[in-house]
Computed example of a mutant assay.
Amino acid sequence: MTTPPPSDPFAAAPGQPEPVQQKKGGGLLKKVGGFVVLVIVAVAWKFGVPYLTGDAPVHAKVGECVIVTGPDNAPEVETQDCSSGKADLYKVAEVHEDTFDPNKCDRTKYSGLAQQLGSDKFVLCLEEVAAK
């Protein structure tokens, strides 16, 4: 008498199609893909969140008006209508890109306000708008 071979738990029952064998491997591709996703999320978080939450510096253009609030070591800038008549209203006279040096502004005419977020840095040269 012969012993029947051991049954394969993954074998198809008679009359059923063969089960699909899952391929092993692809682990490196999954790891690289996961790393790429992680890098994208980190970059989006670093540069996107401040803009979405309003913590990003205002990159006002020449001719726009702004109000500057907050402490000297972390000023907050908000654009305003130049005709608002609000106190502490300044008009942007010059913008200097790729610098963090407020001395780029003619200090006899303007106040220099340096702003930086990541590698984006610039100086706003501001002149006070007379209150109405």
Rank of each mutant, 00 (worst) to 15 (best):
E76K: 14
K23Y: 09
V41T: 01
V123D: 05
G54S: 08
S84F: 01
F10Y: 10
G63H: 05
L52R: 02
M1K: 05
E97K: 04
Y51W: 07
G112M: 13
G118W: 03
K61T: 09
A114S: 15
L38A: 15
L89I: 09
G70E: 01
D72E: 13
T3M: 06
M1V: 07
G63P: 01
D101E: 10
P6T: 05
Q116M: 15
V43D: 04
K121S: 02
K24Y: 02
V37A: 15
E128T: 15
G34F: 09
F35N: 11
A12T: 01
V32R: 07
E127A: 14
G85M: 02
R107F: 05
G15Y: 10
H59R: 15
Y51P: 00
P50S: 03
G54A: 07
V95M: 04
T3E: 08
Y110M: 08
P71C: 07
F10G: 05
V92R: 04
L38G: 15
K24W: 03
A87H: 02
S84N: 11
L113D: 15
V20C: 04
D72P: 09
F35H: 10
K23V: 04
D101K: 01
Q22A: 09
N73E: 15
V66M: 13
D81W: 10
Q80M: 13
S119M: 14
V68L: 07
A60E: 03
A93F: 10
H59C: 03
D88I: 07
G48I: 02
T53Q: 07
K24S: 07
V43R: 03
P6I: 05
G85C: 06
W45Y: 09
T2M: 09
V32E: 11
E18T: 12
Q21F: 01
K104L: 11
T69G: 06
P71I: 05
A11T: 11
T79D: 08
G70S: 02
